[in-house]
Design a protein around this nucleic acid. Structure first.
Lengths: 190, 190
DNA sequence: TGAAAAAATTGATCTATGGTAAGAAAAAAT
DNA sequence: ATTTTTTCTTACCATAGATCAATTTTTTCA
Protein backbone atom coordinates (compact mmCIF):
# COMPACT_ATOMS: atom_id res chain seq x y z
CA UNK A 1 0.00 0.00 0.00
CA UNK A 2 1.30 3.40 -0.96
CA UNK A 3 1.22 5.50 2.16
CA UNK A 4 3.17 7.53 4.67
CA UNK A 5 4.87 4.40 5.98
CA UNK A 6 6.75 4.24 2.73
CA UNK A 7 7.90 7.85 2.65
CA UNK A 8 9.94 7.51 5.78
CA UNK A 9 11.20 4.02 5.17
CA UNK A 10 14.19 3.25 7.33
CA UNK A 11 13.08 5.62 10.05
CA UNK A 12 11.19 3.28 12.41
CA UNK A 13 8.49 5.61 13.55
CA UNK A 14 6.07 4.69 16.32
CA UNK A 15 2.32 4.47 15.67
CA UNK A 16 1.72 7.77 17.40
CA UNK A 17 4.45 9.44 15.35
CA UNK A 18 2.80 8.14 12.17
CA UNK A 19 -0.50 9.43 13.41
CA UNK A 20 1.03 12.84 14.11
CA UNK A 21 2.41 13.06 10.58
CA UNK A 22 -0.73 11.67 8.97
CA UNK A 23 -2.83 14.40 10.54
CA UNK A 24 -0.56 16.99 8.99
CA UNK A 25 -0.68 16.00 5.34
CA UNK A 26 -3.37 15.65 2.77
CA UNK A 27 -3.86 13.30 -0.15
CA UNK A 28 -4.66 14.99 -3.48
CA UNK A 29 -5.82 13.37 -6.72
CA UNK A 30 -4.94 15.06 -9.99
CA UNK A 31 -6.20 14.21 -13.44
CA UNK A 32 -3.88 14.46 -16.41
CA UNK A 33 -3.13 18.06 -17.35
CA UNK A 34 -4.20 19.48 -14.02
CA UNK A 35 -2.11 22.27 -12.47
CA UNK A 36 -0.91 21.63 -8.93
CA UNK A 37 0.94 24.90 -8.48
CA UNK A 38 0.68 27.99 -10.66
CA UNK A 39 3.50 30.52 -11.09
CA UNK A 40 2.81 33.71 -9.18
CA UNK A 41 0.95 31.92 -6.41
CA UNK A 42 2.31 31.56 -2.88
CA UNK A 43 4.02 28.20 -2.52
CA UNK A 44 2.95 26.82 0.79
CA UNK A 45 3.52 23.15 0.17
CA UNK A 46 5.85 20.45 -0.92
CA UNK A 47 4.46 17.31 -2.55
CA UNK A 48 5.30 13.64 -2.30
CA UNK A 49 4.25 11.62 -5.34
CA UNK A 50 2.43 8.38 -4.53
CA UNK A 51 1.51 7.56 -8.11
CA UNK A 52 1.65 9.12 -11.57
CA UNK A 53 3.98 11.83 -12.83
CA UNK A 54 4.37 15.55 -12.32
CA UNK A 55 6.51 18.12 -14.11
CA UNK A 56 7.76 21.47 -12.80
CA UNK A 57 8.66 24.10 -15.37
CA UNK A 58 9.61 27.70 -15.85
CA UNK A 59 7.87 29.81 -18.48
CA UNK A 60 10.19 32.48 -19.88
CA UNK A 61 9.41 35.92 -21.32
CA UNK A 62 8.92 34.38 -24.79
CA UNK A 63 6.43 31.91 -23.32
CA UNK A 64 8.73 28.99 -23.92
CA UNK A 65 8.79 26.50 -21.12
CA UNK A 66 11.80 24.92 -19.49
CA UNK A 67 11.37 21.78 -17.46
CA UNK A 68 13.22 21.71 -14.18
CA UNK A 69 12.10 18.37 -12.85
CA UNK A 70 9.95 15.31 -13.44
CA UNK A 71 8.66 13.50 -10.37
CA UNK A 72 7.24 10.00 -10.15
CA UNK A 73 6.50 7.64 -7.27
CA UNK A 74 8.64 8.33 -4.21
CA UNK A 75 9.93 11.70 -5.46
CA UNK A 76 9.33 15.07 -3.87
CA UNK A 77 8.52 18.16 -5.86
CA UNK A 78 7.91 21.86 -5.27
CA UNK A 79 9.19 25.26 -6.28
CA UNK A 80 11.96 25.20 -3.71
CA UNK A 81 12.98 28.82 -3.92
CA UNK A 82 9.40 29.78 -3.28
CA UNK A 83 8.65 27.10 -0.71
CA UNK A 84 11.65 27.84 1.48
CA UNK A 85 11.72 31.59 1.21
CA UNK A 86 8.01 32.30 1.11
CA UNK A 87 8.17 33.98 -2.31
CA UNK A 88 5.53 33.54 -4.99
CA UNK A 89 6.23 30.61 -7.27
CA UNK A 90 8.28 31.11 -10.41
CA UNK A 91 7.60 27.55 -11.46
CA UNK A 92 4.38 25.87 -12.48
CA UNK A 93 3.76 22.25 -11.56
CA UNK A 94 1.43 20.22 -13.75
CA UNK A 95 0.39 16.62 -13.74
CA UNK A 96 1.29 14.83 -16.97
CA UNK A 97 -0.63 11.69 -15.97
CA UNK A 98 -3.32 10.82 -13.47
CA UNK A 99 -1.41 11.44 -10.26
CA UNK A 100 -1.82 11.07 -6.51
CA UNK A 101 0.29 13.18 -4.14
CA UNK A 102 0.60 13.86 -0.44
CA UNK A 103 0.70 17.55 0.35
CA UNK A 104 2.82 18.82 3.24
CA UNK A 105 2.58 22.51 4.02
CA UNK A 106 5.66 24.31 5.26
CA UNK A 107 3.90 24.86 8.56
CA UNK A 108 3.11 21.17 8.94
CA UNK A 109 6.65 20.26 7.99
CA UNK A 110 8.11 22.50 10.67
CA UNK A 111 5.69 21.15 13.29
CA UNK A 112 6.78 17.66 12.37
CA UNK A 113 10.47 18.59 12.57
CA UNK A 114 9.98 20.08 16.01
CA UNK A 115 8.09 17.16 17.39
CA UNK A 116 10.03 14.32 15.68
CA UNK A 117 13.65 15.41 15.21
CA UNK A 118 14.67 12.33 13.27
CA UNK A 119 12.28 13.43 10.53
CA UNK A 120 14.27 16.62 10.25
CA UNK A 121 17.46 14.58 9.87
CA UNK A 122 15.68 12.49 7.27
CA UNK A 123 14.73 15.58 5.29
CA UNK A 124 18.18 17.09 5.60
CA UNK A 125 19.68 13.93 4.14
CA UNK A 126 17.10 13.81 1.37
CA UNK A 127 17.87 17.43 0.63
CA UNK A 128 21.58 16.66 0.52
CA UNK A 129 21.02 14.01 -2.12
CA UNK A 130 18.81 16.24 -4.22
CA UNK A 131 21.45 18.90 -3.89
CA UNK A 132 23.99 16.49 -5.28
CA UNK A 133 21.62 15.70 -8.16
CA UNK A 134 21.25 19.40 -8.97
CA UNK A 135 25.02 19.81 -8.86
CA UNK A 136 25.33 17.00 -11.39
CA UNK A 137 22.65 18.54 -13.58
CA UNK A 138 24.49 21.87 -13.71
CA UNK A 139 27.75 20.17 -14.59
CA UNK A 140 25.99 18.27 -17.37
CA UNK A 141 24.37 21.42 -18.70
CA UNK A 142 27.75 23.11 -18.79
CA UNK A 143 29.84 20.35 -20.24
CA UNK A 144 27.75 18.12 -22.50
CA UNK A 145 26.37 18.32 -26.02
CA UNK A 146 22.66 17.91 -26.62
CA UNK A 147 23.15 14.31 -27.72
CA UNK A 148 25.14 13.45 -24.61
CA UNK A 149 22.52 15.09 -22.42
CA UNK A 150 19.80 13.04 -24.06
CA UNK A 151 21.70 9.77 -23.56
CA UNK A 152 22.29 10.76 -19.97
CA UNK A 153 18.60 11.50 -19.53
CA UNK A 154 17.67 8.04 -20.81
CA UNK A 155 19.96 6.58 -18.17
CA UNK A 156 18.90 8.68 -15.24
CA UNK A 157 15.19 8.57 -16.02
CA UNK A 158 14.96 4.97 -17.20
CA UNK A 159 11.68 4.12 -15.52
CA UNK A 160 9.81 7.23 -16.48
CA UNK A 161 11.11 8.02 -19.92
CA UNK A 162 8.35 6.00 -21.62
CA UNK A 163 5.56 8.09 -20.07
CA UNK A 164 7.06 11.39 -21.04
CA UNK A 165 6.44 13.20 -24.32
CA UNK A 166 9.52 14.03 -26.35
CA UNK A 167 8.71 17.72 -26.27
CA UNK A 168 8.86 17.59 -22.51
CA UNK A 169 12.19 15.81 -22.66
CA UNK A 170 13.44 18.45 -25.10
CA UNK A 171 12.31 21.14 -22.72
CA UNK A 172 14.19 19.41 -19.89
CA UNK A 173 17.34 19.18 -22.00
CA UNK A 174 17.17 22.79 -23.08
CA UNK A 175 16.78 22.08 -26.81
CA UNK A 176 13.91 22.31 -29.30
CA UNK A 177 11.73 19.36 -30.15
CA UNK A 178 13.09 19.47 -33.71
CA UNK A 179 16.64 19.11 -32.47
CA UNK A 180 15.70 16.21 -30.24
CA UNK A 181 14.03 14.54 -33.18
CA UNK A 182 17.23 14.85 -35.23
CA UNK A 183 19.28 13.44 -32.36
CA UNK A 184 16.91 10.49 -32.13
CA UNK A 185 17.24 9.83 -35.84
CA UNK A 186 21.03 9.92 -35.52
CA UNK A 187 20.95 7.45 -32.67
CA UNK A 188 18.51 5.12 -34.44
CA UNK A 189 20.85 4.82 -37.42
CA UNK A 190 23.55 3.09 -35.44
CA UNK B 1 37.01 39.17 14.06
CA UNK B 2 36.31 36.46 11.54
CA UNK B 3 35.56 33.31 13.48
CA UNK B 4 33.07 30.62 14.28
CA UNK B 5 30.84 33.09 16.08
CA UNK B 6 30.05 34.59 12.74
CA UNK B 7 29.20 31.35 10.93
CA UNK B 8 26.28 30.62 13.16
CA UNK B 9 25.05 34.15 13.56
CA UNK B 10 21.50 34.24 14.81
CA UNK B 11 21.86 30.95 16.63
CA UNK B 12 22.76 32.10 20.16
CA UNK B 13 25.13 29.34 21.13
CA UNK B 14 26.50 28.98 24.64
CA UNK B 15 30.24 29.19 25.31
CA UNK B 16 30.49 25.45 25.77
CA UNK B 17 28.65 24.87 22.50
CA UNK B 18 31.11 27.16 20.72
CA UNK B 19 33.93 25.29 22.33
CA UNK B 20 32.48 21.97 21.18
CA UNK B 21 32.29 23.20 17.59
CA UNK B 22 35.67 24.89 17.68
CA UNK B 23 37.35 21.65 18.68
CA UNK B 24 35.85 19.99 15.63
CA UNK B 25 37.04 22.26 12.88
CA UNK B 26 40.34 23.42 11.58
CA UNK B 27 41.58 26.63 10.09
CA UNK B 28 43.47 26.30 6.79
CA UNK B 29 45.46 28.95 4.94
CA UNK B 30 45.76 28.69 1.18
CA UNK B 31 47.95 30.70 -1.11
CA UNK B 32 46.72 31.75 -4.53
CA UNK B 33 46.53 28.83 -6.92
CA UNK B 34 46.59 26.18 -4.24
CA UNK B 35 44.32 23.15 -4.60
CA UNK B 36 42.02 22.47 -1.64
CA UNK B 37 40.34 19.40 -3.06
CA UNK B 38 41.45 17.37 -6.06
CA UNK B 39 39.08 15.37 -8.25
CA UNK B 40 39.33 11.66 -7.59
CA UNK B 41 40.13 12.14 -3.91
CA UNK B 42 37.72 11.21 -1.14
CA UNK B 43 35.77 14.27 -0.06
CA UNK B 44 35.66 14.24 3.67
CA UNK B 45 35.08 17.89 4.35
CA UNK B 46 33.06 20.96 3.71
CA UNK B 47 34.68 24.37 3.90
CA UNK B 48 33.57 27.72 5.25
CA UNK B 49 35.39 30.68 3.69
CA UNK B 50 36.65 33.25 6.18
CA UNK B 51 38.59 35.33 3.66
CA UNK B 52 39.62 35.19 0.01
CA UNK B 53 37.97 33.33 -2.84
CA UNK B 54 37.66 29.71 -3.94
CA UNK B 55 36.37 28.14 -7.12
CA UNK B 56 34.98 24.64 -7.66
CA UNK B 57 35.09 23.25 -11.17
CA UNK B 58 34.57 20.16 -13.24
CA UNK B 59 37.16 19.09 -15.79
CA UNK B 60 35.58 17.32 -18.75
CA UNK B 61 36.97 14.65 -21.08
CA UNK B 62 38.42 17.35 -23.35
CA UNK B 63 40.16 18.92 -20.35
CA UNK B 64 37.97 21.98 -20.49
CA UNK B 65 36.91 23.22 -17.11
CA UNK B 66 33.46 24.24 -16.03
CA UNK B 67 33.02 26.34 -12.94
CA UNK B 68 30.25 25.28 -10.62
CA UNK B 69 30.70 27.79 -7.85
CA UNK B 70 32.72 30.71 -6.55
CA UNK B 71 32.88 31.13 -2.79
CA UNK B 72 33.93 34.19 -0.84
CA UNK B 73 33.60 35.22 2.81
CA UNK B 74 30.67 33.56 4.56
CA UNK B 75 30.04 31.00 1.79
CA UNK B 76 30.35 27.25 2.08
CA UNK B 77 31.91 25.08 -0.58
CA UNK B 78 32.53 21.42 -1.27
CA UNK B 79 31.85 18.76 -3.86
CA UNK B 80 28.43 18.01 -2.46
CA UNK B 81 27.75 14.80 -4.33
CA UNK B 82 31.01 13.46 -3.01
CA UNK B 83 30.76 14.91 0.49
CA UNK B 84 27.26 13.59 1.18
CA UNK B 85 27.52 10.22 -0.51
CA UNK B 86 31.12 9.38 0.30
CA UNK B 87 32.13 9.14 -3.38
CA UNK B 88 35.45 10.39 -4.71
CA UNK B 89 35.30 14.02 -5.81
CA UNK B 90 34.35 14.86 -9.38
CA UNK B 91 35.11 18.51 -8.73
CA UNK B 92 38.37 20.25 -7.99
CA UNK B 93 38.45 23.21 -5.62
CA UNK B 94 41.21 25.76 -6.03
CA UNK B 95 41.97 29.01 -4.33
CA UNK B 96 42.01 31.95 -6.74
CA UNK B 97 43.32 34.35 -4.09
CA UNK B 98 45.02 34.04 -0.74
CA UNK B 99 42.26 32.36 1.23
CA UNK B 100 41.47 31.25 4.76
CA UNK B 101 38.87 28.54 5.38
CA UNK B 102 37.47 26.52 8.24
CA UNK B 103 37.35 22.82 7.50
CA UNK B 104 34.54 20.67 8.89
CA UNK B 105 34.76 16.96 8.25
CA UNK B 106 31.55 15.02 7.68
CA UNK B 107 32.23 13.15 10.90
CA UNK B 108 32.63 16.37 12.87
CA UNK B 109 29.51 17.79 11.29
CA UNK B 110 27.44 14.81 12.32
CA UNK B 111 28.84 14.90 15.87
CA UNK B 112 27.87 18.55 16.06
CA UNK B 113 24.36 17.84 14.72
CA UNK B 114 23.86 15.13 17.32
CA UNK B 115 25.02 17.18 20.20
CA UNK B 116 23.57 20.57 19.20
CA UNK B 117 20.34 19.98 17.26
CA UNK B 118 19.78 23.63 16.41
CA UNK B 119 22.96 23.50 14.36
CA UNK B 120 21.35 20.79 12.28
CA UNK B 121 18.33 23.01 11.72
CA UNK B 122 20.69 25.81 10.80
CA UNK B 123 22.40 23.64 8.21
CA UNK B 124 19.12 22.35 6.84
CA UNK B 125 17.96 25.92 6.28
CA UNK B 126 21.25 26.89 4.72
CA UNK B 127 20.96 23.87 2.46
CA UNK B 128 17.44 24.88 1.51
CA UNK B 129 18.64 28.29 0.38
CA UNK B 130 21.52 26.86 -1.61
CA UNK B 131 19.06 24.45 -3.14
CA UNK B 132 16.96 27.39 -4.24
CA UNK B 133 20.05 29.06 -5.71
CA UNK B 134 20.90 25.94 -7.70
CA UNK B 135 17.30 25.75 -8.93
CA UNK B 136 17.61 29.32 -10.16
CA UNK B 137 20.93 28.57 -11.83
CA UNK B 138 19.43 25.65 -13.78
CA UNK B 139 16.50 27.78 -14.90
CA UNK B 140 18.91 30.48 -16.06
CA UNK B 141 21.06 27.97 -17.92
CA UNK B 142 17.99 26.65 -19.69
CA UNK B 143 16.28 29.89 -20.54
CA UNK B 144 18.82 32.65 -21.04
CA UNK B 145 21.23 33.71 -23.75
CA UNK B 146 24.91 34.08 -22.97
CA UNK B 147 24.56 37.85 -22.73
CA UNK B 148 21.65 37.60 -20.32
CA UNK B 149 23.57 35.09 -18.21
CA UNK B 150 26.52 37.45 -18.02
CA UNK B 151 24.37 40.39 -16.94
CA UNK B 152 22.76 38.15 -14.38
CA UNK B 153 26.17 37.08 -13.12
CA UNK B 154 27.22 40.69 -12.64
CA UNK B 155 24.13 41.19 -10.50
CA UNK B 156 24.36 38.06 -8.40
CA UNK B 157 28.12 38.23 -7.89
CA UNK B 158 28.49 41.99 -7.47
CA UNK B 159 31.02 41.92 -4.67
CA UNK B 160 33.30 39.29 -6.12
CA UNK B 161 33.19 39.95 -9.84
CA UNK B 162 36.18 42.29 -9.68
CA UNK B 163 38.48 39.63 -8.23
CA UNK B 164 37.59 37.04 -10.80
CA UNK B 165 39.31 36.58 -14.14
CA UNK B 166 37.08 36.77 -17.19
CA UNK B 167 38.05 33.27 -18.27
CA UNK B 168 36.71 31.97 -14.97
CA UNK B 169 33.49 33.89 -15.46
CA UNK B 170 33.21 32.44 -18.98
CA UNK B 171 33.71 28.98 -17.58
CA UNK B 172 30.96 29.63 -15.02
CA UNK B 173 28.60 30.83 -17.75
CA UNK B 174 29.32 27.89 -20.02
CA UNK B 175 30.80 29.94 -22.86
CA UNK B 176 34.30 30.51 -24.26
CA UNK B 177 36.43 33.42 -23.17
CA UNK B 178 36.28 34.75 -26.75
CA UNK B 179 32.49 34.79 -26.65
CA UNK B 180 32.52 36.59 -23.32
CA UNK B 181 34.90 39.14 -24.76
CA UNK B 182 32.50 39.76 -27.67
CA UNK B 183 29.61 40.15 -25.26
CA UNK B 184 31.56 42.65 -23.23
CA UNK B 185 32.36 44.67 -26.33
CA UNK B 186 28.68 44.66 -27.27
CA UNK B 187 27.72 45.88 -23.82
CA UNK B 188 30.42 48.57 -23.77
CA UNK B 189 29.10 50.09 -27.00
CA UNK B 190 25.77 51.09 -25.49
C1' DT C 1 -13.49 2.55 -36.48
C1' DG C 2 -12.81 6.92 -38.35
C1' DA C 3 -12.18 11.88 -37.83
C1' DA C 4 -9.80 15.29 -35.25
C1' DA C 5 -6.15 16.66 -32.42
C1' DA C 6 -1.63 16.14 -30.72
C1' DA C 7 3.02 14.80 -31.33
C1' DA C 8 6.94 13.78 -34.05
C1' DT C 9 9.65 14.20 -38.11
C1' DT C 10 11.87 16.37 -42.06
C1' DG C 11 14.03 19.84 -45.07
C1' DA C 12 15.76 24.41 -45.84
C1' DT C 13 17.66 28.13 -43.94
C1' DC C 14 19.53 31.20 -40.12
C1' DT C 15 22.06 32.58 -35.96
C1' DA C 16 24.54 32.38 -31.70
C1' DT C 17 28.39 30.68 -30.15
C1' DG C 18 32.69 27.84 -30.94
C1' DG C 19 37.42 27.20 -32.83
C1' DT C 20 41.73 28.92 -34.48
C1' DA C 21 45.22 32.13 -34.80
C1' DA C 22 47.23 36.33 -34.02
C1' DG C 23 48.03 40.51 -31.69
C1' DA C 24 47.17 43.99 -27.83
C1' DA C 25 46.81 44.99 -23.10
C1' DA C 26 47.56 44.10 -18.42
C1' DA C 27 49.88 41.94 -14.64
C1' DA C 28 53.81 39.82 -12.62
C1' DA C 29 58.53 39.09 -12.17
C1' DT C 30 63.23 40.26 -12.43
C1' DA D 1 61.74 50.00 -15.59
C1' DT D 2 62.02 46.34 -18.76
C1' DT D 3 61.06 41.78 -19.82
C1' DT D 4 58.17 37.85 -19.47
C1' DT D 5 53.94 35.81 -18.69
C1' DT D 6 49.19 35.97 -18.36
C1' DT D 7 44.88 37.68 -19.80
C1' DC D 8 41.92 39.81 -23.05
C1' DT D 9 40.51 41.13 -27.62
C1' DT D 10 39.76 40.82 -32.56
C1' DA D 11 39.05 38.76 -37.10
C1' DC D 12 37.72 35.06 -39.89
C1' DC D 13 35.54 30.80 -40.60
C1' DA D 14 32.95 26.50 -38.80
C1' DT D 15 29.18 24.27 -36.53
C1' DA D 16 25.47 22.93 -33.29
C1' DG D 17 21.25 23.87 -32.63
C1' DA D 18 17.23 27.25 -33.67
C1' DT D 19 13.60 28.73 -36.59
C1' DC D 20 10.09 28.25 -40.04
C1' DA D 21 7.12 25.60 -42.77
C1' DA D 22 5.27 21.45 -44.22
C1' DT D 23 4.18 16.62 -43.71
C1' DT D 24 3.74 12.19 -41.42
C1' DT D 25 2.73 9.45 -37.49
C1' DT D 26 0.45 8.58 -33.29
C1' DT D 27 -3.04 9.28 -30.00
C1' DT D 28 -7.50 10.57 -28.55
C1' DC D 29 -12.14 10.38 -28.46
C1' DA D 30 -16.77 10.72 -30.50
Amino acid sequence: MKSIAEIFKGLELTDSEYQFIKERCQKLELSKGEILLEKGQPTLSQYYVLEGCLRSFFEDAQERDHTLQFAIHDWWISDYTAFFDGNPAVLTIESIQKTTVLEFTRKAQIEIFESIPKVESFFREKMEHSFGAFQKRIINDLSKTAKEKYLDFLQTHKEIETHIKNYHIASFLGITTESLSRIRRELAKH
